[in-house]
């Protein structure tokens, strides 16, 4: 059975890119354009993993992360953002992984595989 991933990213082109790449890697992908949408989706559906940006309108990734953990502490969350300087702070924010956005999506795919195995 395909694993179901949730991508929370405000930038449409990136969202599409991730989705295409991950689908190519055999994942089922659901897309959300901000934290709020993402949480609504987490409430309704069961995901195997969440990939989330930080800076987003409506609800940012940090707030969304907190809410997701409070709803279902078992879902692995990967923070995937351009802000490299947040990395150190994420140790306390209990995300499962922190990755800096890169055109080389192999890193992301590897991390997902690692977390889901």
């Amino acid at each position: 059975m395909k694993k179901k991933l949730l991508i929370v990213e405000d930038e449409e082109s990136l969202r599409e890119l991730y989705a295409e790449e991950l689908e190519d890697n055999g994942y089922d992908v659901v897309k959300a354009s901000n934290g709020k949408e993402g949480i609504e989706l987490v409430k309704k559906e069961k995901f195997d993993l969440v990939i989330m940006d930080i800076r987003m309108p409506e609800m940012d990734g940090i707030e969304a992360l907190g809410k997701i953990i409070s709803m279902d502490g078992k879902i692995p969350v990967i923070i995937y953002t351009a802000y490299s300087n947040y990395k150190s702070n994420f140790m306390t924010w209990t995300a499962d992984a922190y990755l800096t956005k890169s055109s080389n999506l192999d890193e992301l795919v590897e991390k997902i595989e690692e977390l889901l195995s």
């Binding site: 930038e11 082109s13 990136l14 890119l17 295409e20 790449e21 351009a82 956005k101 890169s102 055109s103 080389n104 999506l105």
Partner: peptide, 14 residues
């Protein structure tokens, strides 16, 4: 710049 670059790079790879 990173977002468009990542996007561009990503698609170029694709």
């Amino acid at each position: 710049i990173r977002n468009p670059l990542v996007t561009m790079g990503g698609y170029a790879k694709r």
